[in-house]
Each structure stands twice: as structure tokens, then as C-alpha cells.
Design a protein around this nucleic acid. Structure first.
Lengths: 146, 146
DNA sequence: GCTCCTGTTGCAACTTTTTTGCGTCTGCAA
DNA sequence: TTGCAGACGCAAAAAAGTTGCAACAGGAGC
């Protein structure tokens, strides 16, 4: 998804958009996070001076249309974002009891048969989003001991 | 997901919660809709007198914990809900250009291999959510004719 | 270096979405 | 009939996201 071999700043410049501090920080923060983050989480992790929330939203929107960032829906109040890039396509499990989120690389992510069905409907498929819901080991333990 | 052979009102009563008008209407509205609906959509489709928005939210929360309704994340501003029940497990394609949503039954929804990986992590898997993003036939057409 | 132009940012106000508190009402059980 | 729990409406608030505007920053051209 992320343009070949190019680093994010280059992609930005290629699109005629400067790689400002705010944008670079967002990309760094997301790249360093194990989990997708909400706009608020992202702002919280900014070193001082923190940007305005509006700026974070605007930059996320931009980075997202450039494909440097993507939103992940974990059925919460707010959206979360993650950095795109080599080997970053992931699927996630969310524990319905405690909210814990685990990621696992989508190594053999074979949804091609399904995508094929969709293409037959005339759609172009550019991406997908797959999340699992269940109960994490800890919460299963608590359940049993009641 | 929906308890065997039981109808929604029975499930509600079994859980000690009355099947009030509001709850029955929500279930009917969702069952009749081709697409998942937002709380606002749902309220709009209520016959007069329309319930308060808070009531709709509260009932959706209840129905959702009872498993009669489930939320669908289509990466929009608000959540959407759909009725659960026999043969209603669906996957969806969302057109990134016009927002059009198409559903297709998840007939050969074989994610069992992935679920197996998750179980190996100690999780119980109770459900999943899979959405595709792309471009619908109409928008592809427009694209080309530019 | 200075000027112009474009795009970015902060700030404040605002909209939309979702949640909460509270008083009233309803239906069932004692 | 009385009491109680849960459901509902209403109002207020919290949370999330958006927009308009003025100030500002950085590169292109002089």
C-alpha cells in the first residue's frame, strides 16, 4: 500500500505537501505504536508543544488520503489510525470484556476468493478490514473462577 | 449467534427484559433494512411518536449485549447496527468515492484458519467483522470518463 | 534579502454523536 | 393497593470531529 521503497517524507513531497513537524510526528508516533491510536492518543503522545486537535484531525485526513495512514475500526467510540507500510497489514482481536487489543500479522491473509466475488459485482477492491471479537486469556480465566 | 429457534421477544423475556414497543420497533426496522443503520436512521424510521434518541441508544446497547443486534463499522462518523439472526451474517463492500454500500451473504466465509491462529493465542473467538473498501461500478465509470 | 503565494497551524466557535442524571410512568408481584 | 424495578422522556453534558479565519512559514522568483 505504501509507495515502493519511498519514505513517508518523500511521498509527502512528491504529492506537493510539505513534511511538517506535525505530520512527521504523527507518522513516527503511529509507527512506534503496537496498536492503532485514536486522534486523542496521538495528540497526547506529541512532545510539547502539542498541536491543536484540529491540526491532528486535518493531518490524519491528509495522510489517510495519501495512503500513509489508515483507519481501523474496532467498534469503539472513536476511530483509530495506524501507519501503513511494508508488512504492516494486520488483523486484530479485541477482547469484548476488557477491551484489550492484540494484533497479529496477516501472513496468510487469503481473502482472494471473497474479493473475487466482489469484483464480479463490478467493484474494484482496494482494501479491507478484518477484526475478530472474543475473550482474551485473562478474561476467560476470571469467567471460570466465578 | 441468535439463540436457536427463539424469536427476539422470547430472548428478551428470557433475559428478564420486557419486549417494549421501542425494542420491537428497532428489531423490526433493522430486520427490514437491507443495510446496517445508524441510531439516527433508526429513529427516523420509527412511526410517530418517535422515541427519544437516548432511548434508542440505550436499547441498542441492551440489544447488542443480548446479541440480538450487532454493530458494523464502516469507517464513517457514526456506528451502524444490523439485526443478527439466521443467515444474516454478511460482509460488505463500501465505495470510497460515493459511500454506496453493498452487502453479500458470507456463504463461504472461511476464516477458520485465521480463527485457529487466534485461539492458539488463548483467545475465544465469538465473532468477526469483515469489510471491503473499493470503488463501485458507477464511480469507476465516472473515473474513466474524466 | 525581499515579496508573493500557497499551504499549515492555532484558536474559537460549532455541529454531530453519544452518554448521563433525574423525575415520571408502567406493569408485575406481594 | 402498594411497592419496586425497569423503561422512557427531557435536559444537560461530554466527547468527537469540523469549519472559518487570521497569523505564520517556507519556497519561487525577483
Amino acid at each position: 500500500m505504501a509507495p515502493n521503497g519511498e519514505n513517508p517524507s518523500e511521498t509527502l513531497r512528491r504529492m506537493g505537501r510539505p513534511a511538517t513537524r506535525g505530520r512527521q510526528e504523527i507518522l513516527r508516533i503511529l509507527a512506534e505504536s503496537r496498536l492503532p491510536l485514536s486522534p486523542r492518543d496521538i495528540r497526547d503522545r506529541f512532545p510539547e508543544p502539542k498541536p491543536d486537535a484540529a491540526t491532528v484531525y486535518r493531518n490524519l485526513a491528509l495522510l489517510s488520503t495519501l495512503g500513509l495512514v489508515r483507519s481501523v475500526a474496532l467498534h469503539e467510540r472513536s476511530r483509530r489510525y495506524e501507519a501503513t507500510g511494508e508488512g504492516t497489514h494486520r488483523h486484530r482481536v479485541v477482547c469484548r470484556a476488557c477491551g484489550r487489543i492484540e494484533a497479529f500479522p496477516a501472513k496468510k491473509c487469503d481473502l482472494s476468493r471473497i474479493e473475487e466475488d466482489i469484483r464480479r459485482l463490478g467493484f474494484t477492491v482496494t482494501g479491507h478490514s478484518l477484526e475478530f471479537f472474543g475473550k482474551c486469556p485473562d478474561c476467560r480465566g476470571k469467567e471460570r473462577s466465578r
